[in-house]
Amino acid sequence: MGDQGVWGRSAWPVWNQARPGSRAAHIRGVVVLSLLLLWPLWEALRPDGEWPEPTAVRIAIGAATVLYAAGWLGAMIAGVRLPPRRRILLVGAMFALAAVAALLRNGPLYLGHAGAFSFVLAVAAWLLPARWGVLLGLGTWAVQALARWTAPGPVHWEDVGGLVPGIVIPVAVTLLIRLVVQLGQAREEIEVLAAAAERDRLARDLHDVLGHSLTTITVKAGLARRVLESGGDPEQALAELRDVERLSRQAHTEVRLTVSGRRRPSLAAELAGARAALRAAGISAVLPPSADHVPAELAEPFAYVLREGVTNVIQHSGATRCEVLLGDDWLEVRDNGPGPGPGPRQDAARPGNGLCGLAERLRAVGGRIEAGPLPAGGFRLRASRA
């Protein structure tokens, strides 16, 4: 897994900021954490006369315990906003407070108490890389076992083994909670990325669908207007207007299918549409007779390439001739237009939305897109499988 994930060497936990709607959940978390402190505070401050220490020592123990509890609560709530160096200093300070409280309470022997460092180990597992938390737990167990070993009297191995729950439980439970929180954050991030990807898909597909449809509608409406203005054949103008109506309905249907993600373009249909659009624009078209030999996985992206290429020939090229060449795993749209213009005729270092969308589609099938001027003049848009 390397440096990534909970067990990465440098996997410092980074928590998302609380959302505005999670204030109640944040308050509940603070209350739950505060309740967990009742036991250590009671142990340190109970006035039951069982402790032989003087009053001043008991006050010092109480002060150290209160600081320890406040530090633990603040570390669990706000420590996640600190940079790594301050987190290390915070954990070190809490270890020092825990050691001071243990030494004041019962001398070096209490350093070997099973719960003396439980809370600070939970903080370490919450704020530090998981490996660090586990290593600190092992180190704490070693120190506690050594304290038991050096204390007067016989050493019972069951006492040394009894230290393990006080180490394992806080570290394991905290790491489990941390993992659950990180999984929740990952789910939220996946939802955000999925929404962004869906927006990109809609923008790309609507650009491809509406760009060609609106261009063809504009060309045919302009042709009908010119026929009527020149006193030409009204039937020709009516035919073009009928095509405009048909294309408008078709575009409406395609937009609905695009939004629902059910639109699947046909390369054969795009060839027929390209022929009609180029004819209406007064551009001589040289198109392949069929697209049956194109593999199924390339037919859809090639359909988008053909639609985008023909659209930009009509809109930007100023060409009088457009040629479409089609192989088993490649497609070219060529024209004899004079100028670079916008759209795919931009400089390759600054591709437009159309080229970027085509490049994404072709990458999905192991292909690539190329666009640039031809040596003898004109422009070429080529899609191929690498």
Rank of each mutant, 00 (worst) to 15 (best):
Q4S: 11
R9W: 13
V14M: 05
G21W: 12
S34E: 04
L41N: 03
E43A: 13
E50N: 10
T55M: 04
I59Y: 10
A60W: 04
A63G: 05
A64F: 07
A75R: 02
L82V: 11
P83C: 02
F95D: 04
A96V: 11
N106Y: 15
L109C: 03
F117K: 07
V120I: 14
L135A: 15
T150V: 13
V155P: 00
V155E: 06
L163S: 02
L175M: 14
L176A: 15
L179H: 13
R187T: 13
I190W: 05
E191K: 09
D200Y: 02
L206V: 08
D208W: 01
H212S: 08
R226L: 06
G232Y: 04
L241E: 02
H252A: 11
T253N: 09
S266T: 05
G273H: 12
A277L: 12
A281W: 06
V286H: 14
V286L: 13
V294F: 10
P295F: 11
L298R: 10
A299F: 06
G309R: 10
G318I: 07
V324M: 04
G341C: 03
P344K: 00
R350G: 00
G357T: 05
L358M: 08
L362F: 11
R363A: 15
A364S: 13
A364T: 05
I369L: 14
G372F: 07
P375G: 14
A376Y: 01
A376R: 15
L381G: 02
R385C: 13
